[in-house]
Design a protein around this nucleic acid. Structure first.
Length: 298
DNA sequence: CCTGGTCAAGTTGGG
DNA sequence: CCCAACTTGACCAGG
């Protein structure tokens, strides 16, 4: 069993930079390329630092921020790595990251953000989503990430039809993307029972977020979902765990807490040795170290 | 320097 | 009807 850190550090001085389109669009092309080049160079150096930290602290997985190449797909200020000043150094660093992650068995994952809606009725939204997914596939291959995890999208008052559109749009994805694509239950529209059948049929791995399931329940028990989720994977299954910020009696139980309350760890997960659990907690690496202590995992 | 309004993109549901 | 929430800071203009 391995635990996954999501994108950021809390105490450790490891950071990822980004940029804003409103700033860059006012600049000359040459300025933009230098500016983006410096940011990506920094991000590569810090991803390597992140992996070293994970290795030294027995954290077996790391989720890479979607802004690792900032504004890569932006219609106005987008770019290619080959066009950047430090392209050669950047490619060298990415290769080193890939080799290091493989050698130390640090699993890398990605989670495109909420603007990726593959089942939208608006074709422009779907086109942008595909571009964004292809960017994730490109970066994932450069660093050796094996998962690109998304939600099913909106329900639009007809979940069946929404899933049909999702299925139709899958065929536009390239092999590097579709091979890594996974679907996760969310806390507003799509429950595990909405997605498990779909994932089995379409041969897509299902990421089980137990916090979302506790916010948006269906007829399935956590144990049943866990079993069926694992059956959708032909590699190490992936789970998400978080605790509610103000407890389960609060008005809003969706917000994430700084730490994981060990009571929120599903008992039925304990018997699985070969799974990855991504920890979504604001205290980041500190929360994982604490959870591992609480679970006597070391 | 330090502060605080703002940041490409979608959808939902609470106020 | 509008805006916060979601992964959430981090960026950067202006004082």
């Amino acid at each position: 069993m391995r635990f996954g850190l999501c994108c950021l550090f809390y105490k450790e001085n490891i950071t990822f930079k980004t940029s804003k389109a409103s700033f860059l669009s006012k600049k000359e092309l040459s300025f933009r390329r230098k500016y983006i080049s410096d940011i990506i160079f920094h991000n590569c150096q810090n991803l390597k630092k992140a992996l070293v930290y994970c290795f030294e602290n027995n954290i077996g997985s790391f989720r890479v921020t979607s802004r690792f190449f900032p504004l890569y797909t932006h219609p106005e200020v987008g770019y290619k790595i080959e066009d950047l000043q430090d392209a050669m150094n950047i490619f060298d660093l990415l290769k080193d990251i890939k080799v290091y992650a493989k050698e130390k068995d640090i699993r890398l994952t990605m989670h495109p953000d909420q603007f990726v809606v593959l089942n939208s009725p608006t074709s422009l939204v779907v086109e942008n989503s595909i571009k964004e997914l292809e960017y994730h596939g490109y970066l994932a291959d450069l660093i050796g990430a094996d998962v690109i995890n998304i939600h099913a999208g909106g329900a639009y008052n007809d979940k069946k039809l929404a899933l049909l559109r999702l299925k139709d749009n899958l065929k536009y994805l390239s092999k590097p993307v579709i091979d890594k694509l996974t679907l996760e239950n969310d806390d507003r529209s799509f429950t595990p029972s909405d997605l498990l059948g779909f994932c089995t049929k379409e041969k897509i791995s299902f990421v089980y977020d137990v916090h979302h399931h506790r916010c948006l329940k269906d007829s399935l028990s956590e144990e049943e979902v866990t079993k069926r989720a694992i059956a959708t994977w032909n590699m190490e299954p992936l789970f998400h765990l978080s605790s509610p910020k103000d407890g389960w009696e609060a008005k809003n139980i969706k917000k994430h807490a700084d730490f994981i309350d060990v009571k929120d760890f599903p008992k039925c997960w304990k018997k699985y040795k070969n799974i990855t659990i991504e920890i979504e907690a604001k205290a980041k690496e500190i929360a994982i170290l604490q959870l591992m202590r609480d679970l006597d995992f070391s």
